[in-house]
């Protein structure tokens, strides 16, 4: 095992945006068993320490590869692009306009008579947009890195919105 390998190689998956979730689950479980602390109880301290390091790296890898946004961000990271901590980046005005409108709609939901209906349809709309972006990312990240990066930035706006929608849902349920 080698934590200098990227997460895909470490876990044993092909480097791709499309991943086989059941394969990811199987490989993860296998590695987690191999690295279980009980197995190292009688080994040297150095080996125990390494196993803990591998396990931490494995768990980071699983979390990163499991969900589409961190997976896409990681694929860009492997190509030297960081969309997570970049500061100021111009974004398409039309897209921003849409983001503004979606957030305005979300803000008005608590005042509606049937807030859950609107909440549901808003979430569906956002999920559709995200699905389209994932599709687009899968198509272009190998051939057109610039477009792929722009797609991930859009995904980041929409995932933030999903978090906000879920937060409101919790508040309404509360």
């Amino acid at each position: 095992m080698d934590i200098n390998k990227n997460y895909f190689d470490f876990i044993g998956l092909p480097i791709s945006f499309h991943i086989d979730q059941s394969l990811l689950a199987d490989r993860s479980l296998e590695l987690q068993k191999t690295l279980h602390p009980d197995r190292f109880a009688h080994q040297t301290e150095r080996e125990q320490r390494l196993a803990v390091q591998y396990m931490a790296y494995l768990n980071e890898g699983i979390a990163t590869l499991k969900a589409p946004l961190p997976r896409a961000q990681y694929l860009l990271h492997l190509k030297g692009i960081d969309t997570i901590s970049e500061s100021s980046t111009p974004v398409e005005p039309m897209f921003l306009m849409q983001q503004m409108e979606l957030r305005e709609r979300l803000e008005e939901i608590p005042e509606l008579e049937e807030p859950y209906d609107e909440l549901e349809s808003l979430l569906e709309e956002v999920d559709d947009l995200l699905a389209q972006l994932r599709e687009r990312f899968a198509q272009c990240y190998e051939s057109d890195l610039e477009s792929a990066t722009a797609v991930v930035r859009k995904m980041q706006f929409l995932e933030k919105l999903v978090t906000e929608i879920e937060r409101l849902e919790d508040r309404l349920d509360g």
């Binding site: 970049e86 974004v91 921003l96 983001q99 503004m100 706006f157 995932e159």
Partner: peptide, 13 residues
């Protein structure tokens, strides 16, 4: 003026 910060998802008009 419409701007946004992708890293944190903030949108400003």
């Amino acid at each position: 003026g419409m701007v946004g910060a992708p890293a944190c998802g903030d949108v400003m008009r």
